[in-house]
């Protein structure tokens, strides 16, 4: 199976961490529902140009978190994700992004009110765009303009 994992090879962030974060997001968001068969370790290694050692480590970590389970001889599957776990994971992804935005704001000395205003503005713009694409029934692929 194909998983749209995108790695930044130049980034100083370890590859196993990049794969793990993206895979966890696919599972927690429900994009990869319970029972989905994952690629074999060798296949994912080929896909990501990583060593099988790295991929095995990712699968093991996610198995320990209860997100994956391996059945001997058949492969690795997405496990049933506990609702509270899913909720915590959903929240923590967003909180992480907001923290990064807040750090950026604090660095250049914006006030709380200004930052709240910016968040409201961005939200308003995104929701409007969302409503528009839904009405047109157009593909929701962001930035889908021809090059």
């Amino acid at each position: 199976m194909w998983i749209p994992i995108q790695l930044n090879e130049q980034s100083a962030e370890p590859l196993y961490h990049q794969i793990e974060v993206q895979l966890r997001a696919f599972i927690v968001s429900g994009q990869m529902p319970e029972g989905t068969l994952l690629p074999s370790i060798r296949e994912l290694a080929q896909l990501t140009k990583c060593s099988v050692i790295t991929v095995r480590r990712v699968y093991q970590d996610l198995e320990n978190e209860g997100l994956l389970r391996t059945r001997q001889g058949t492969g690795t599957f997405v496990a049933k994700v506990d609702e509270t776990l899913r909720d915590t994971q959903r929240r923590s992804t967003v909180i992480g992004a907001i923290e990064a935005a807040v750090d950026a704001g604090i660095r250049v000395h914006f006030t709380d009110e200004e930052m709240m205003e910016m968040l409201r503005e961005v939200l308003g713009r995104k929701r409007a765009a969302e409503a528009l694409t839904e009405r047109q029934g157009a593909p929701t692929d962001e930035g889908g303009e021809p090059a």
Partner: peptide
């Protein structure tokens, strides 16, 4: 060396 560990260690 393990490939990924090697590529991460050299910066």
């Amino acid at each position: 060396y393990e490939k990924d560990a090697l590529l991460e260690a050299w910066q």
